Amino acid sequence: MTGDPHSHRPTQAVVLAGGQGSRLRPYTDDRPKPMVEIPGTGTPIIGHQLSWLAAEGVTDAVVSCGHLAEVLQEWLESADLPLNVTTVVENEPLGRGGGLKYAARHLPHPDRPWYATNGDIWTRFSLRDMAEFHAERDATATLALARPRIPWGAVETDAFGHITDFIESPPSPYLINAGVYVFSSSFTALLPDRGDHERTTFPRLAREKSLAGFPLPQGAYWRAIDTAKDLTEAAKELAAQTTG
């Protein structure tokens, strides 16, 4: 590889921030989901995301808005942000894949790799390591993979049916799509103009062995903010980190 040895590390990202967040009502009655604040921080979810992206070397972000877009745009214009932000609004619903493609067309460097993240994810891990992982596998797309905790207590039994243990909120036995991605520049053209890339583009890349999965490092913080309980848990975890 010639030139910059870190040229495969993206400096641009798309943040998908158009969700309605119906399960987060009443918090989302007057704001889009990414504008909901983590209690005790005074900063909306997207503010935490943009700070993380900037700390990981991102200089330009495209924020794809939808539901109550003007609330998000107004905050972005007034906030002291650590990177350049452009907002785009879909005039008509394009689906997740179409929306991602539309936003990607506004990236400043279409010939370079890029990150993408769902606007309701609050996480911290090394995107640089994920970009290295992506480049080493020569992947077209790489998904971050999380192992969330099951919200219920689990019960263990022996072969005879006796209960042997109770485990509170155990880790899931399955990895899930963590909503953070690294994409090669060629990925944009593979996205549908309308529709869901997770039903079309991703399965195609998986068949071609061009889709990679990056397991989040042990101990990395990750939480999807879907419900009011998630907000409460995130605030508790943040307080524990601060006092720990």
Results as ranks from 00 to 15, higher is better:
residue 74 E to L: 09
residue 65 C to S: 13
residue 53 L to C: 08
residue 76 L to N: 02
residue 61 A to Q: 03
residue 65 C to I: 08
residue 71 V to W: 04
residue 57 G to N: 14
residue 76 L to I: 14
residue 67 H to A: 13
residue 63 V to M: 10
residue 50 L to C: 04
residue 56 E to Y: 05
residue 68 L to P: 02
residue 64 S to R: 04
residue 48 H to Y: 05
residue 47 G to L: 01
residue 74 E to F: 07
residue 75 W to M: 09
residue 41 T to Y: 05
residue 32 P to K: 04
residue 42 G to S: 10
residue 37 E to L: 12
residue 74 E to V: 11
residue 35 M to A: 10
residue 76 L to F: 05
residue 33 K to D: 06
residue 41 T to R: 04
residue 55 A to C: 09
residue 35 M to T: 06
residue 65 C to L: 15
residue 36 V to N: 00
residue 41 T to C: 08
residue 43 T to S: 07
residue 36 V to S: 01
residue 66 G to I: 03
residue 38 I to Y: 01
residue 39 P to D: 07
residue 67 H to G: 11
residue 58 V to Y: 01
residue 74 E to W: 09
residue 59 T to F: 05
residue 33 K to N: 08
residue 71 V to Y: 05
residue 48 H to E: 08
residue 60 D to C: 13
residue 50 L to W: 03
residue 73 Q to G: 11
residue 71 V to H: 09
residue 71 V to N: 12
residue 34 P to G: 11
residue 67 H to P: 06
residue 65 C to W: 00
residue 38 I to H: 02
residue 67 H to V: 14
residue 68 L to Q: 15
residue 76 L to E: 03
residue 40 G to Q: 15
residue 69 A to F: 10
residue 48 H to T: 05
residue 69 A to N: 14
residue 58 V to W: 00
residue 62 V to P: 02
residue 51 S to K: 12
residue 45 I to Q: 00
residue 59 T to C: 07
residue 39 P to Y: 10
residue 69 A to M: 13
residue 39 P to I: 11
residue 37 E to G: 05
residue 33 K to H: 12
residue 75 W to A: 08
residue 49 Q to R: 05
residue 42 G to C: 10
residue 37 E to T: 14
residue 67 H to Q: 13
residue 43 T to K: 06
residue 52 W to D: 04
residue 32 P to S: 14
residue 46 I to A: 00
residue 66 G to S: 14
residue 50 L to K: 00
residue 41 T to M: 08
residue 45 I to K: 00
residue 52 W to F: 08
residue 50 L to S: 01
residue 54 A to E: 07
residue 42 G to P: 06
residue 62 V to Y: 01
residue 71 V to Q: 12
residue 64 S to F: 06
residue 42 G to M: 09
residue 65 C to T: 15
residue 43 T to Q: 06
residue 54 A to L: 13
residue 68 L to C: 10
residue 54 A to P: 03
residue 55 A to E: 15
residue 38 I to C: 04
residue 60 D to R: 08
residue 74 E to G: 11
residue 48 H to I: 07
residue 39 P to K: 07
residue 54 A to Q: 07
residue 65 C to R: 01
residue 65 C to G: 07
residue 36 V to G: 01
residue 33 K to Q: 12
residue 60 D to Y: 11
residue 53 L to E: 03
residue 73 Q to C: 12
residue 47 G to R: 00
residue 34 P to F: 04
residue 59 T to Y: 06
residue 38 I to M: 04
residue 51 S to H: 14
residue 34 P to H: 11
residue 55 A to Y: 11
residue 49 Q to I: 10
residue 52 W to C: 04
residue 69 A to S: 14
residue 73 Q to Y: 08
residue 67 H to S: 15
residue 62 V to R: 01
residue 63 V to K: 02
residue 41 T to I: 10
residue 50 L to M: 09
residue 34 P to A: 14
residue 38 I to P: 00
residue 41 T to H: 06
residue 49 Q to E: 11
residue 68 L to S: 11
residue 75 W to I: 08
residue 44 P to R: 02
residue 43 T to G: 03
residue 74 E to R: 14
